[in-house]
């Protein structure tokens, strides 16, 4: 093999850096969505690789559902500070209070309510592009999405009318009020993300690693017991050795029983896994088209 060879992670890395720099070159007011989850942690490292020694040419944006794991928010704030980056947080609570987001009667999940909160933040700061950490291997509707995903002035995705993406030439042109969502990790898998975390020695929130936690069994999943998810009278609370595989809201993220307490262990666990990452998220299970419907409405 010649010396001029890139392995699969180096290929994915240079592709993602190219995408990030296209954003910086083509948009006036981009933002990078940073939750503190493993995918956006990789995004941040890629942004450093794309733009250092300069400052990141975009602020970080996070929509806080109010149902986040506290460990995640702590990590998010600490990492943003370490980067010297501007972090903008917009809260679903505030969007509900101001009437921007209106919960349906009995709606506990904040999943749908993230959408108006995000769209309001885009309008407030006049962002013309948001970089997100979504991957095509996560879900069937995402498998059809472009790197540069055009949103109309209502923030909507039209899957049947996407711009063709040819070679590495991304059409970034939009009219005022329209918006682009850009996904540099489109071609990454869950395994690639963890292998990149290992190669780059990236820190991740502690909830990805094995710890003891009180859980209740609901709809085939172990949910963490919190003030938001109190045990029902007939439910047995079990203290288990668990970790999270994917982080959604604390009320819908299934904990996985696992002794994995290092990145190596996690990689070994994924290699042997028999369910997908999103198999542990109740929000995607509701119907086969659940993600497609949310994306059309403006979700990531």
């Amino acid at each position: 093999m010649s010396n001029y060879h890139l392995d699969h992670l180096q290929h994915l890395e240079t592709e993602a850096i190219h995408v990030m720099r296209e954003v910086a070159g083509e948009f006036e007011r981009p933002a990078l969505l940073f939750s503190g989850g493993k995918d956006s942690i990789c995004l941040i490292r890629l942004a450093e690789k794309a733009f250092r020694p300069s400052e990141l040419p975009m602020p970080l944006l996070n929509v806080d559902t109010g149902h986040h794991f506290p460990e995640l928010n702590e990590f998010r704030d600490a990492r943003a500070k370490e980067l010297g980056a501007k972090l903008i947080v917009r809260r679903v609570e505030d969007a509900i209070a101001s009437g921007v987001a209106v919960p349906a009667p009995g709606e506990i999940s904040r999943n749908r309510l993230q959408i108006p909160t995000l769209l309001a933040a885009i309008e407030e700061f006049r962002f013309d592009c948001c970089i997100g950490g979504a991957r095509r291997d996560e879900e069937k509707a995402r498998a059809k999405e472009r790197f540069f995903s055009f949103r109309d002035s209502f923030g909507q995705w039209d899957p049947k009318n996407q711009r063709p993406e040819i070679w590495n030439l991304y059409n970034a042109r939009i009219n005022p009020g329209e918006n682009m969502r850009v996904f540099p990790l489109s071609n990454w898998t869950e395994m690639d993300v963890w292998e990149y975390i290992r190669r780059e020695k990236l820190e991740v929130p502690t909830i990805y690693f094995s710890h003891r936690r009180q859980c209740v069994r609901r709809q085939g999943q172990w949910l963490p017991v919190t003030t938001l998810v109190p045990p029902k009278p007939n439910e047995e609370v079990r203290e288990l050795v668990v970790r999270v595989r994917t982080i959604g809201d604390i009320i819908s993220t299934g904990m996985v029983e696992s002794p994995a307490d290092s990145v190596d262990d996690i990689i070994a666990e994924i290699a042997a896994a028999r369910v997908t990452e999103r198999g542990s998220r109740a929000d995607d299970k509701s119907s086969e088209a659940a993600m497609e419907d949310r994306k059309k409405a403006g979700y990531f």
Binding site: R136, K144, P159, K160, N187, E288
Partner: peptide, 20 residues
């Protein structure tokens, strides 16, 4: 993956899949 495709039984866009 898209609803229209399952209804019509055709593939209407490029779908990307990954394996190793």
């Amino acid at each position: 993956g898209l609803r229209a495709e399952r209804e019509q039984g055709i593939t209407i866009d490029v779908a990307y899949r990954y394996f190793a």
